[in-house]
Design a protein around this nucleic acid. Structure first.
Lengths: 111, 111
DNA sequence: TATATATTCAACCATATGGTTGAATATATT
DNA sequence: AATATATTCAACCATATGGTTGAATATATA
């Protein structure tokens, strides 16, 4: 179900320090847009846009209560990202092992 | 040593399907720029630029032999990315466990 | 030496990104 | 009803991104 597009959105969302900081903030509990924005030295609007990117990536969910929008962290999309990274790394490790074995064998044959 | 900038570059590099495909290609062995570019329906120059992004992120290394540039996959930067994701996920899981326990306890207290 | 191949450099283009400010909308509070 | 607060919407700006084409550079090959 993780279309490449989904992975794109996840990784794009994570590839920005402000957005990673927002996620960290939300990972320790729900917060409103203003609360989230407060520590950052940028306009509320800028943070609002970052939140949109995180929402598009489904890393953040919004719950409206009156005029307040409560944001919460959704870890699920991270799974696909972690999986991609693990797979890419594992595959290489396997090949590296094979290569090392090959070199060892060649080396042994030489003697 | 993983400055936020390093993580930025790693995640930015990964947040593009063409670049992920290039990495996959290289994870099964060295290849020249032209070889890497061949399967993609885009100009050599475009691929050359993608390779530059991957190099800047230290996910790809270049070895020049005459006019040929051999590219190889470097998995190291993935570790920092995997670590960030794992940490972010784990932290949340811990809190969720705590919250669930709390709700269970409250529920038990009610009865 | 002339030509072909591998690669980058440079200029350009359209669109995306990350920020700003100012106005609009919706809900609370006095 | 008037005002204050929370948030988005809209327009704008500078720079980045992902692509193109054409020329330059470096190395092989005939």
């Amino acid at each position: 179900m993780a279309t490449p597009q989904t992975l794109d959105r996840t990784l794009t969302a994570l590839a920005d320090p402000t957005r990673r900081a927002i996620l960290r903030r939300l990972s320790s509990g729900e917060a409103r847009v203003t609360d989230v924005a407060q520590p950052f030295g940028m306009s509320l609007n800028a943070v609002s846009k970052h939140i949109l990117v995180l929402e598009r990536a489904k890393l953040v969910k919004r719950r409206k209560v009156g005029r307040d929008h409560y944001l919460s962290y959704r870890p699920e999309p991270l799974d696909a990202a972690a999986k991609w990274i693990a797979e890419t790394r594992t595959f290489w490790a396997t090949r590296l092992d094979a290569l090392e074995k090959l070199l060892r064998d060649e080396d042994a044959a030489k003697r």
